Computed example of a mutant assay.
Amino acid sequence: MSYTGDVAKGGPADVRELPGLTISKIEVGDFGNNAYLLRCTETGDGLLIDAAAEPDRLLELIGDRPISSIVTTHRHQDHWLALADVARATGAEVVAHPLDAPELPVEATRTVGHGDTLNVGEATLDVVHLRGHTPGSIALVYQGSHVFTGDSLFPGGVGNTQKDPERFNQLFTDVVERIFDRLPDETWVYPGHGKDTTLGAERPSLPEWKARGW
């Protein structure tokens, strides 16, 4: 079966095989959080995006193959409830943006900013700083056509900025300039909650998002 990104709490992972990288997506916790396990197809090294909840399920997903990193996309608690347990069990480095890292339950062993890269074995992820949902929200881009956006971009709009015009304008500008202006329409979007989308599906709605202010 082909990957759709449609997952449900307690259900199986949806798995996507890409050149150089395998992506496994599951839903965990009470807030519909997505967690993504990325594995290098050459070395087997792994990276987990958002240890959001249900550490036992995340550790079952990881299995007996090591992961080198756990990336937290932003400071909100629903994205790191299982972080301490998974980090302790795996020994993986804890990665976050320096503006959000102090809010995590464990110390970040590595901080990253806009333009940095993360390695998963032989695969490389580009770090994109998207300011607005939180000060230190980040997205990860693989091969210029796959982007893990945390809570900064979803089907239908950018992330919640609590009706703050300044924060919305900052997030909207960052998402347009750093995601939509740089990546092609076929780019697949893997958000922090809910269903996946593509930039091509969302791009026509950008003027509407800007006009409504959320």
Score class of each variant (00 low, 15 high):
residue 146 H to I: 11
residue 174 D to F: 03
residue 121 G to E: 02
residue 160 N to G: 00
residue 10 G to K: 13
residue 65 R to M: 01
residue 110 R to M: 12
residue 95 V to I: 15
residue 83 L to E: 07
residue 113 G to S: 12
residue 120 V to H: 09
residue 132 G to A: 00
residue 112 V to S: 01
residue 107 E to C: 03
residue 147 V to H: 09
residue 48 L to E: 04
residue 206 L to A: 05
residue 196 D to Q: 13
residue 155 P to N: 05
residue 108 A to R: 13
residue 68 S to I: 01
residue 165 P to Y: 02
residue 194 G to C: 06
residue 199 L to R: 03
residue 37 L to F: 12
residue 55 P to I: 15
residue 126 D to A: 13
residue 47 L to C: 13
residue 106 V to K: 15
residue 185 D to M: 05
residue 21 L to G: 08
residue 81 L to E: 13
residue 193 H to N: 07
residue 70 I to H: 09
residue 124 T to H: 03
residue 185 D to I: 08
residue 210 K to Q: 11
residue 165 P to V: 05
residue 133 H to G: 00
residue 141 V to N: 10
residue 103 E to C: 04
residue 53 A to V: 09
residue 195 K to D: 09
residue 152 S to P: 12
residue 136 G to Y: 01
residue 104 L to C: 10
residue 76 H to K: 11
residue 75 R to N: 02
residue 25 K to H: 07
residue 171 L to S: 02
residue 50 D to Y: 10
residue 70 I to G: 07
residue 141 V to P: 13
residue 71 V to G: 00
residue 97 H to M: 04
residue 3 Y to I: 06
residue 82 A to N: 10
residue 179 I to C: 06
residue 76 H to Y: 11
residue 114 H to Q: 10
residue 23 I to F: 04
residue 25 K to C: 06
residue 138 I to K: 04
residue 71 V to S: 03
residue 132 G to L: 01
residue 184 P to T: 07
residue 18 L to R: 15
residue 113 G to Y: 08
residue 161 T to P: 02
residue 21 L to H: 12
residue 113 G to N: 07
residue 152 S to W: 09
residue 200 G to L: 06
residue 161 T to C: 14
residue 47 L to Y: 05
residue 15 V to F: 06
residue 19 P to W: 10
residue 208 E to Q: 13
residue 48 L to R: 09
residue 77 Q to W: 11
residue 109 T to L: 11
residue 164 D to K: 02
residue 155 P to D: 08
residue 171 L to R: 03
residue 150 G to S: 10
residue 150 G to W: 14
residue 26 I to F: 07
residue 60 E to N: 11
residue 138 I to F: 00
residue 165 P to R: 04
residue 135 P to R: 14
residue 105 P to K: 12
residue 10 G to L: 15
residue 117 T to F: 08
residue 207 P to A: 04
residue 195 K to C: 00
residue 121 G to Q: 07
residue 205 S to C: 01
residue 75 R to L: 08
residue 180 F to I: 06
residue 46 G to K: 00
residue 115 G to N: 11
residue 158 V to P: 08
residue 88 R to H: 09
residue 85 D to P: 03
residue 164 D to M: 00
